[in-house]
């Protein structure tokens, strides 16, 4: 059963994404071009300074930033890949039944142990 808005796209759906890509480009690009045409434009060196509460900035903004985010990114990477594996399983869970259930329990157990390990190791703590 299909509910395609455009009948022609029934068998080439991913190509029609280009259309939406183009619409978005046109929307943003058009608005920005329109805005540059109609909006006032005046130069003032103070205006183009990066905002820092009215004080000239000290030092560069682009420095090596201490990221507590880094560890999370790695853990995320692991878990996200695992989640991707879960999706195909989820679709066929109903049809396969018991075997899929046992397999996923083992899978999630390992995943959970991994999370527990990371938790106990203090990787989930913000540094």
């Amino acid at each position: 059963m299909t509910f395609q808005f455009i009948q022609i796209f029934t068998d080439m759906e991913s190509e029609s994404l280009i259309l939406f890509f183009i619409i978005a480009l046109v929307l943003v690009g058009g608005a920005i071009i329109f805005s540059t045409l109609v909006a006032p434009n005046s130069f003032n060196p103070a205006k183009s300074e990066p905002y820092e509460c009215g004080i000239p900035t000290e030092g560069p903004a682009w420095i090596q930033f201490n990221v507590g985010y880094y560890l999370f990114a790695i853990i995320y990477l692991i878990f996200d890949v695992e989640t991707v594996f879960l999706f195909p399983w989820a679709v066929v869970m109903k049809t396969i039944g018991m075997r899929a259930f046992i397999e996923i329990i083992i899978f999630l157990l390992i995943l959970g142990l991994g999370l527990l390990y990371a938790w106990k190791k203090g990787a989930l703590k913000w540094v």
Binding site: Q4, F5, L17, F21
Partner: peptide, 24 residues
């Protein structure tokens, strides 16, 4: 551009009503 394109692409797949969905 990127933030708008992302939301546009997501909109394409939403079913708004019966038979009203651009890409299924």
């Amino acid at each position: 551009f990127i933030v708008i394109i992302c939301s546009f692409l997501a909109m394409a797949a939403l079913p708004y009503a019966k038979g009203l969905q651009a890409i299924d």
